[in-house]
Design a protein around this nucleic acid. Structure first.
Lengths: 148, 148
DNA sequence: CTAAATCCTACTAATTCTGTAGGAATACTC
DNA sequence: GAGTATTCCTACAGAATTAGTAGGATTTAG
C-alpha cells in the first residue's frame, strides 16, 4: 500500500510544474530538485520517464527544461502514479490495466478479491479524478484560510 | 499501492478460518496451505505473526491447529494487513499509526499530502470496516446468486 | 514413547528501490 | 564555430524488501 520515492518525487515535480505562475512555463530539473530537495540525477530519470509517457515535454540545451505536455487540468495523479509505480490495484487480479489471474479457483466467488476491487476503485476514484489543478487549488485554499 | 504475498496469504488464511462451519474450530497450517495453495512453511510464519499480534490462537501438538482469537465479526481486514504489511497509508506523513514527517516545508499546505490523506482514509474506510464475517457473507451472496 | 503439530530463528536467492556516474546529444549565446 | 548549459540515455551499485527454505526445539494427543 505504499507509494515509492520515485512516485512521490514525480508527483511533487509535476505539482511544482503546475504551480508555476504561467502554467506552461518550463522548469529545469535542477530548479525542481533544489526546491523539492530531490537528488538531481534521480529526478532526471523520473522526468524522463514522465516525458516518454507523454505527460511532459522538454527542451534540450541551454535554457531548456521541462513543461507539462497538456494543461494541468488534463493530467491526473493516477496517470503519474501509474507511470512511475505501476498499477493502482493492490493485487493484480483486480487491476483494470494490468490484470493477471490469481490462484483462487473461482474469481467471482473470491471474497478477498471483491474487497480488494473496492479498494482499487476507491483509490482510483481519488487519483484518477484529481488533477494537478485540483492539487494546486487545494494548496491555495489552505493558504488563504491560514491568512485569516 | 501493492499488497504483498505475505499479506494476501494471511488474509486468505484468516478468511478460511472464518468460513469454517463452526467458526471457532481449528484448522492446521497444512490444511490451509493445501486448500489455498500456499507454501506451508511460509504460511507457518505468517500464522505465527498473526498469533503474536493477538488475532489468532493456537494449540500445539498432535491434533493442534489455529483458531480465531476473537469472533470473526471482531476482526477487520485492516488489522490483518497492518500486522503483515505495515501501515495502510501510502506515505508515512499521513499515517495515523506510524506517522513520520516528510520533507515538505509545511505539511498543512502540502497539496500532495492532503490528497494522500484522502487515499489513506479511503483505504481505511474499507479495510477497517470490513470484517471477516463481511467477506464470508459476500462470498455466500455471490454463490446464491449464481445458483439461480 | 511416538507421532503430529506448533514455535522459533537463521539463512538465501531474487527482486525492487534509491540512488550514482558518466557521457552523448542538443540547443542557446557570443 | 566555440563554449556552455541543459536534456537524454544507459549502466551500475548498494541497501532494503520479498518470498520463500531449512532445520530443529517444543508441545501435546494418544
Amino acid at each position: 500500500m505504499k507509494l515509492s520515492k520515485r512516485g512521490e518525487y514525480g508527483l511533487r515535480a509535476m505539482v511544482a510544474l503546475a504551480s508555476q505562475p504561467s502554467a506552461r512555463d518550463l522548469l529545469q530539473a535542477k530548479e525542481i530538485a533544489e526546491r523539492e530537495r530531490i537528488p538531481v540525477k534521480f529526478l532526471e530519470q523520473i522526468l524522463l520517464a514522465l516525458k516518454n509517457a507523454g505527460l511532459l515535454g522538454s527542451r534540450s540545451g541551454a535554457g531548456g527544461g521541462y513543461y507539462l505536455a497538456r494543461s494541468a487540468d488534463q493530467i491526473t495523479l493516477g496517470q503519474i502514479v501509474r507511470v512511475l509505480d505501476g498499477p493502482l490495484a493492490p493485487i493484480r487480479c483486480v487491476s483494470k490495466v494490468a490484470y493477471e489471474p490469481c490462484a483462487c479457483p473461482d474469481e467471482n466467488t473470491c471474497g478477498l478479491r471483491l474487497v480488494m476491487l473496492d479498494v482499487r476503485n476507491a483509490i482510483s476514484d481519488i487519483l484518477d479524478q484529481t488533477t494537478l489543478v485540483d492539487v494546486a487549488r487545494r494548496v491555495e485554499l489552505v493558504r488563504v484560510a491560514k491568512a485569516d
